[in-house]
Computed example of a mutant assay.
Amino acid sequence: MRLLHTSDWHLGRSFHGASLLEEQAAALARIIELAREAEVDAVVIAGDLYDRTIPPAEAVLLFNDTLAQLRQDGAAVVAIAGNHDSHVRVSIYDPLLAAFGVTIRGDVRRADQPVLVQPRRGGTPVAIYPLPYLEPAVDGPWLARGPEGDSAAPTRLRHEDVTRLALGRIRRDREGRPDHHAVLVAHTFVAGGQTSESERELTLGNVDRVSVEAFAGFDYVALGHLHG
């Protein structure tokens, strides 16, 4: 399978008051060109599709046009909401778009519902699990619920905790797909990663860090958030 892994498009971002939309359009045109030349099976966008929760209309149009072109060239598109995105807004049409080969996942409750991609050149099917950015205080209580609806979650959850809870649900789905390779798409700060000046601090200390070991068992993990 050929996978083009991208992330952190931050469409609609400005630099000292000047719009970067023209430069971003040029970068996305290159992504379209790469996907076409390599005949990729899927293009992944691992979060921060936009630079803010309510992006400018021009950024939304650029995003829509880019996804339409990628699909026209034959690639499935799998995207997730990042910490800069409105989870509800970016994924409002996800159930409808999925029927046309475009997934934009913002609801963690659907993280264990993979996008199934059959490689164009044949071979083993691939299950791509889109796990949007997790807010411990918001997503933790639901993720901690057991089969009977009970919650045994600690009062203060870290990113590591909620990520492992979400991955536990995904792994249970994986058990029923032994013939599928598995790709995870996530937007998080993995311990050991290097920060850069273009990122914005989310927390104090290291409570936002997730260990590499949490992602064991996947064939590929497509991460976003750290721009390097």
Rank of each mutant, 00 (worst) to 15 (best):
G101I: 08
V117L: 15
V102F: 06
V108L: 10
Q113N: 05
V90M: 12
L131H: 04
P114D: 01
R109H: 06
A127R: 07
P119C: 13
V115L: 09
R109N: 08
G101K: 10
T124P: 00
I92N: 11
L97K: 07
P125K: 15
V90N: 08
Y93N: 13
R109W: 04
R120Y: 05
P132T: 14
A111F: 07
Y129Q: 01
D112N: 06
G101E: 03
P95D: 14
I104F: 09
R121N: 09
R121F: 04
A99D: 00
V88I: 07
V108F: 15
R89G: 04
R110G: 09
A127F: 11
R109M: 03
G101Q: 07
S91M: 14
Y129W: 15
Q113G: 00
A98Y: 01
D112Y: 06
D94V: 11
V102K: 03
S91A: 15
V102W: 11
G122C: 14
Q118F: 03
A127N: 06
I128P: 00
P125I: 15
R89Y: 02
D112H: 12
G122K: 01
P132I: 15
I128S: 01
G123P: 02
I128F: 15
G122Q: 08
I92G: 00
V108Y: 15
V115K: 05
Q113H: 09
P130D: 04
F100W: 09
V90Q: 06
P114I: 10
